[in-house]
Design a protein around this nucleic acid. Structure first.
Length: 399
DNA sequence: AATACGGGGGT
DNA sequence: ACCCCAGTATT
C-alpha cells in the first residue's frame, strides 16, 4: 500500500541488506551552523546538549537498519541535487524519479548548467514526470540563483522560500539534507506520522493544525544527523506509517504513539472535510386516502431524481397544506419526523407531512404524471431511496 | 469512472 | 483563509 504522490517516496521496501554496507552517506564538512542552529536551539534540548530526543533516537535507530542510504541524490550530495530530487519527489514515486533524476543531472550536472539551459531542454528532461509547472519553476529558480546568490542555492530559509517552487518544507529538506542544518520538514508523510504519534485530530491542511504540526516537527528534529533524520521520517511515513493499515508492529515509535495506543490509526490523520455542501429543504406531502393509497408524482426530466416517482413537494411545512389542498380534499396535517438526505453536491432537509383521510379530486388523479398508489404498487415503481424508506415506514391510517 | 489528494502559488 | 494546479493512486 504505497502512498500516493510524495507519499510514494519509498516505492519499494528497503533492501534487506546485510552486505549492503553502505557507508553512512558521507556528508561533507558540516558547515558552520551559526545562526540557524542558534535560532532553533531554543525549541528543545537538541541544540544545546547534543542529545537526541526519544523520538529522533528511535527513528534513527530504525533508519540505520531500514532506511535508504543509497538514493542517487545522496551520492554525491549537493544542494542542487537534493533540490532537484525534492522537486521531482513532490509528485512522483522514488522508483520513477531515480531514472529521471540521473538523466537530468547527467545532462545538467550543476545549477549553472540548468540556469543556462533553455526551457525546452529542461522540459524535455522533465517529459514524462508531469506537473511541468514545477520544471518551469525549477528553471526560473536556477536563473534567480545566478542573479541573486552567485550561482548557488542560498543556505537561508527565507531566501530559499523566495524561489519559485520552494515552500517551507522543501526549503527545510534542502537545508537539512544538503547541509545538515537543523530545519524541520513537514510533507504529507511527516504530517501523517505526527498526527498519529501525538494523536492530533483535525484536518492537517487546516492552518491551526498545521501550525501545531510544524512545532512538533521542529521539536523532534535533532541537531545531530539531521539529514538522516529527515530522510528517516519520510521513509517511516512512506513504508510503515502508511495511510491505511500502517505496520505498527514494525514501527519504532509504536511504544509511545498515541494513535497506536488508542486505536486511532484508522481515523488519523483526519480526512479533509468535505467542502461544505449547500443545504436545501423541502416539505414532502404524503397525501393518503381512506384506502391507504398515496398520491405520487412523476418528477420532471430536469434535476435530481428525474423521471422517478416521488411525493408532491412544497417549499416548506407552512405552505404544504395549501399545496395539498390543490391535490385532494384534505382534513388534517400531521408532521412526520424530518430527515436529511445527502447528495453528492448538496444536502436536502426533508420535512414529511402526512395528510390522512384525503379524498381524491377527479381532475388530479387523471394525469399521466400523477397516480394514487397502494402499497403493492410501490414495489414496481422507481422511487428515490429516501422516499421509499419514508413510504415503507408510514404509520397506519389514523382513526 | 469517480474521487481524493500533495505541496506550492496566487489572491 | 481561500481556491487552483494537473497529475497519480485509490476506490
Amino acid at each position: 500500500m504505497v502512498e500516493r504522490h510524495a507519499g510514494g517516496r519509498l516505492a519499494y521496501p528497503a533492501p534487506a541488506g546485510r552486505h549492503r554496507r553502505h557507508r553512512q552517506p558521507r556528508r561533507r564538512e558540516r558547515p558552520h551552523q551559526g545562526p540557524a542552529l542558534r535560532i532553533h536551539a531554543g525549541a528543545g534540548l537538541n541544540g544545546r546538549f547534543h542529545t537526541l530526543n526519544v523520538f529522533a533516537r528511535e527513528l534513527l535507530r530504525w533508519y540505520d537498519h531500514h532506511g535508504r542510504k543509497d538514493l542517487p541524490w545522496q551520492h554525491p550530495r549537493s544542494a542542487y541535487r537534493v533540490w532537484l530530487s525534492e522537486i521531482m519527489l513532490q509528485q512522483t514515486q522514488v522508483v520513477t524519479v531515480m531514472g529521471y533524476f540521473q538523466r537530468f543531472v547527467d545532462r545538467l550536472p550543476t545549477l549553472r548548467d540548468l540556469a543556462e539551459a533553455d526551457e525546452d531542454t529542461v522540459l524535455a528532461l522533465w517529459s514524462g514526470l508531469g506537473y511541468y509547472r514545477r520544471a518551469r519553476f525549477l528553471h526560473q529558480a536556477a536563473r534567480l540563483c545566478m542573479e541573486r546568490h552567485d550561482g548557488d542555492l542560498p543556505r537561508d530559509l527565507d531566501a530559499l522560500m523566495n524561489l519559485p517552487g520552494i515552500g517551507r518544507s522543501t526549503a527545510g529538506a534542502i537545508l537539512a539534507q544538503a547541509h545538515g542544518l537543523r530545519f524541520p520538514i513537514l510533507d504529507g508523510n511527516v504530517k501523517r506520522v505526527l498526527t498519529r504519534y501525538h494523536g492530533i485530530a483535525g484536518f492537517p491542511g487546516e492552518s491551526a493544525i498545521e501550525k501545531k504540526l510544524w512545532l512538533h516537527a521542529d521539536e523532534h528534529t535533532p541537531a545531530k544527523r539531521t539529514a538522516d533524520y529527515t530522510q528517516a521520517i519520510m521513509d517511516l511515513g512512506a513504508t510503515v506509517c502508511v495511510r491505511s493499515k500502517p505496520a505498527c508492529l514494525l514501527c519504532p515509535q509504536a511504544a509511545t504513539c498515541v494513535a497506536h495506543r488508542d486505536g486511532l490509526t484508522a481515523v488519523l490523520p483526519t480526512v479533509k472535510p468535505g467542502k461544505k455542501v449547500p443545504t436545501r429543504s423541502v416539505a414532502m406531502l404524503l397525501v393518503r386516502d381512506k384506502r391507504g393509497r398515496v398520491l405520487l408524482e412523476r418528477r420532471g426530466p430536469q434535476g435530481v431524481w428525474s423521471g422517478l416517482w416521488s411525493l408532491p413537494e412544497a417549499v416548506d411545512a407552512d405552505t404544504a397544506p395549501a399545496v395539498a389542498a390543490t391535490l385532494a380534499r384534505v382534513r388534517q396535517a400531521d408532521p412526520l419526523p424530518a430527515f436529511t438526505h445527502v447528495f453528492s453536491h448538496y444536502k436536502l432537509d426533508v420535512s414529511p407531512i402526512l395528510f390522512d383521510h384525503a379524498a381524491p379530486l377527479a381532475a388530479v388523479a387523471d394525469r399521466a404524471d400523477r397516480r394514487w398508489c397502494n402499497r403493492d404498487e410501490l414495489a414496481s415503481l422507481g422511487l428515490p431511496a429516501p422516499v421509499r424508506t419514508l413510504l415503507d415506514n408510514l404509520p397506519e391510517i389514523s382513526p
